[in-house]
């Protein structure tokens, strides 16, 4: 089996922020074209700061751990700061991923991006 770091296993064993947010400010729903996995990311935003994030993931250990880590990293950050959180940042925060599993961390980045896009669209909608 893939050798995962202790951090990955920790987030896999006890994933943080699993679930859905009621009335979220943004939802990102993405599929992984590589292996067919699916991730959903929910965010709650107050005054441009992400105050809560939750996820649901159908995927491997790396996919679950990166989603979990991604939610931890974004909570408390401003929308602009969150842009810096790429899949590499998430993977590094987990002490790295096996090379074949790097694509799973893309999923977390994309889900986050999609959630923020959704948030911005909703915001524009409200203003309009």
């Amino acid at each position: 089996m893939e050798q995962y770091s202790e951090k990955v296993m920790d987030h896999f064993r006890n994933p943080r922020n699993v679930g859905e947010i009621e009335n979220p400010d943004g939802i990102g729903h993405v599929g992984n074209p590589m292996c067919g996995d699916v991730m959903e990311m929910y965010i709650k935003v107050k005054e441009n700061i992400i105050v809560d994030a939750k996820f649901k993931t159908f995927g491997c250990g790396a996919a679950i751990a990166t989603s979990s880590m991604a939610t931890e990293l974004v909570i408390g950050k401003t929308i602009d700061e969150v842009r810096q959180i790429t899949n590499k940042v998430v993977a590094e925060a987990l002490d790295g991923l096996p090379p074949i599993k790097m694509h799973c961390s893309n999923l977390a980045e994309e889900a986050l991006e999609a959630a923020i896009k959704d948030y911005k669209e909703k915001l524009a909608h409200k203003k309009a």
Binding site: F12, F58, C60
Partner: peptide, 14 residues
């Protein structure tokens, strides 16, 4: 249904 094999294996391994 609805879940992925590797994550099942990792859990079984634990």
């Amino acid at each position: 249904e609805g879940i992925e094999g590797e994550s099942i294996l990792l859990n079984l391994d634990m």
